[in-house]
């Protein structure tokens, strides 16, 4: 498993798209936190998450999962003697770590900039923001993984995965978060993520990959 994870990291490190995505998230976060919006005077309003984060996580899912179908590279991994379950789990681990880095950048940069613009300080409910944010990200990762494994095609994965995540997270943001406690929302996201990850592993274990 360790070798699989290392190999997946090596592949990501060698891809230019990975650096482009990281750069994009930094620029995007900085811009979104720096430009004042009408009515956004509170610290917390400035410290928001870039909208394109979903697209970027979907793009990572394409590189890590969906591309293997198009390029016909899955069987190379099977012939290295690894069980399908381990192959998919190793990719999930790498996807999770890279997504965490992207998420930290997406939260951290606006946080620092907002704090600087507002002359220091932090949102009083920062722990709630973080718990919802990271559970939401876990949910997005699980949806993107399942979408990539089921749909296989790069463009379709990108479009459908982003669409589903955007739709669900916006419903949560505007309809549920104002009335339901954050802890319940976080728990629901984590539960759904677990289900989708299990479905991804189960599906991949019996899938015709080429």
């Amino acid at each position: 498993m360790e070798r699989l994870i290392k190999a997946n990291f090596y592949k990501l490190i060698k891809r230019r798209e990975t650096y482009f995505l990281l750069l994009l998230i930094c620029v995007e976060s900085a811009v979104s936190a720096s430009i004042p919006k009408t009515g956004d005077t509170m610290f917390i309003d400035r410290c928001n998450i870039p909208l394109a984060l979903d697209v970027e996580l979907a793009f990572l899912a394409v590189i890590i999962f969906a591309e293997n179908y198009a390029k016909g590279t899955w069987y190379g991994e099977f012939l290295n003697g690894y069980a399908r379950r381990n192959i998919i789990i190793s990719k999930l681990v790498v996807y999770g770590i890279i997504s965490l880095i992207v998420s930290i950048l997406a939260v951290g940069i606006p946080f620092i900039i907002s704090s600087w613009i507002n002359g220091g300080g932090y949102p009083s409910n920062w722990h709630a923001i973080l718990s919802v944010f990271f559970s939401k990200n876990l949910f997005i990762i699980s949806v993107m993984t399942l979408t990539a494994i089921l749909l296989r095609k790069r463009i379709i994965t990108l479009a459908v995965g982003t669409g589903i995540c955007f739709f669900i997270t916006k419903i949560s943001e505007y309809l549920l978060e104002p009335i339901i406690p954050n802890i319940v929302i976080s728990f629901t996201y984590i539960l759904l993520s677990f289900i989708f990850i299990m479905l991804s592993i189960g599906n991949f274990s019996f899938q015709e990959v080429q």
Binding site: R3, Y10, G72, N80
Partner: peptide, 24 residues
């Protein structure tokens, strides 16, 4: 089988290196 299991966006060395890491 059908086509070589290669990531065509990477170099030949990187492709081999990925397999080498997997196999130690």
């Amino acid at each position: 089988i059908e086509k070589p299991p290669i990531d065509e966006d990477l170099s030949a060395w990187d492709n081999l290196k990925i397999y080498a890491i997997r196999m130690g």
